[in-house]
Amino acid sequence: MLTKAKPPVSVRVAQVFWILSLVAGAAGVVYAFIIRIAQLPAIEKLVKGVEAHRADSTYESAAQIVFWCIFGAMIAVVFLQIVFFVSFRNRRSSVRWWQFGTLFLQGIVLIFAHELVAMGDRGKPLEIILGTQYLLAIIALCVSLLPPALRWSARKYDIRRGPSA
């Protein structure tokens, strides 16, 4: 008889860490959106350091492009984490490899955000939030690799044998 068994503690802990990582990522997206106006002059200054012989509107446009690319990547990471979290809960095969790929992408976003967007006093909290998100996702993936979690995901269905008492 097919039943729905409770997942082991390691799976529950991994799920909690994934959810906390998602919350931190969402907080990072919201905070980045809030500080975007204040960060644009610093990004313009950074862009101007590459080549200083352009019109000011070019630097403004380039700063906008840099910010919105990083912002879009942050949103993409959160979206992918949601998709793979749901896949993990539904015991999809090879989902941990996809989650690992998300960690790789998240690390790249963290590096680019640190170098291009999270500058100055207002950028420090963004760095901390994104670093926390990354750390929580790493912990979640490591916990999901514990043997009870691996056994739980290897079983597609929970089967209870014999009559119920």
Rank of each mutant, 00 (worst) to 15 (best):
residue 134 Y to S: 06
residue 74 M to N: 12
residue 87 S to D: 10
residue 164 S to M: 04
residue 20 L to P: 08
residue 14 A to E: 10
residue 7 P to R: 01
residue 149 A to F: 12
residue 94 S to F: 12
residue 87 S to R: 14
residue 126 L to N: 11
residue 148 P to H: 04
residue 140 A to D: 06
residue 156 K to W: 10
residue 150 L to D: 05
residue 2 L to Q: 14
residue 129 I to T: 01
residue 154 A to T: 05
residue 89 R to F: 03
residue 71 F to S: 08
residue 98 W to D: 03
residue 36 R to M: 11
residue 14 A to C: 09
residue 41 P to G: 02
residue 59 Y to P: 07
residue 91 R to C: 02
residue 124 K to E: 02
residue 79 F to M: 14
residue 41 P to R: 01
residue 136 L to W: 09
residue 86 V to K: 08
residue 152 W to H: 10
residue 115 E to T: 08
residue 142 C to Q: 05
residue 145 L to G: 13
residue 25 G to K: 00
residue 39 Q to V: 10
residue 132 T to S: 15
residue 113 A to M: 09
residue 18 W to H: 14
residue 94 S to Q: 07
residue 49 G to N: 09
residue 95 V to A: 06
residue 76 A to T: 07
residue 31 Y to T: 03
residue 33 F to R: 07
residue 9 V to D: 12
residue 61 S to V: 02
residue 51 E to L: 03
residue 140 A to S: 12
residue 69 C to R: 13
residue 110 L to R: 01
residue 78 V to E: 07
residue 126 L to T: 11
residue 18 W to F: 15
residue 143 V to W: 02
residue 25 G to I: 00
residue 76 A to I: 10
residue 56 D to S: 13
residue 122 R to L: 15
residue 82 I to R: 05
residue 126 L to E: 14
residue 8 P to H: 01
residue 125 P to I: 06
residue 58 T to Q: 08
residue 109 V to F: 03
residue 9 V to C: 03
residue 104 F to A: 11
residue 55 A to E: 14
residue 7 P to W: 00
residue 41 P to A: 03
residue 71 F to G: 06
residue 83 V to N: 00
residue 106 Q to F: 08
residue 59 Y to R: 02
residue 32 A to H: 05
residue 83 V to T: 04
residue 50 V to S: 04
residue 125 P to T: 07
residue 8 P to Y: 01
residue 61 S to D: 11
residue 55 A to S: 11
residue 22 L to Q: 07
residue 74 M to C: 11
residue 103 L to I: 15
residue 8 P to F: 01
residue 97 W to E: 13
residue 90 N to W: 04
residue 161 R to S: 09
residue 15 Q to Y: 04
residue 22 L to E: 12
residue 96 R to C: 03
residue 155 R to F: 08
residue 58 T to D: 12
residue 158 D to G: 06
residue 161 R to Y: 09
residue 72 G to I: 12
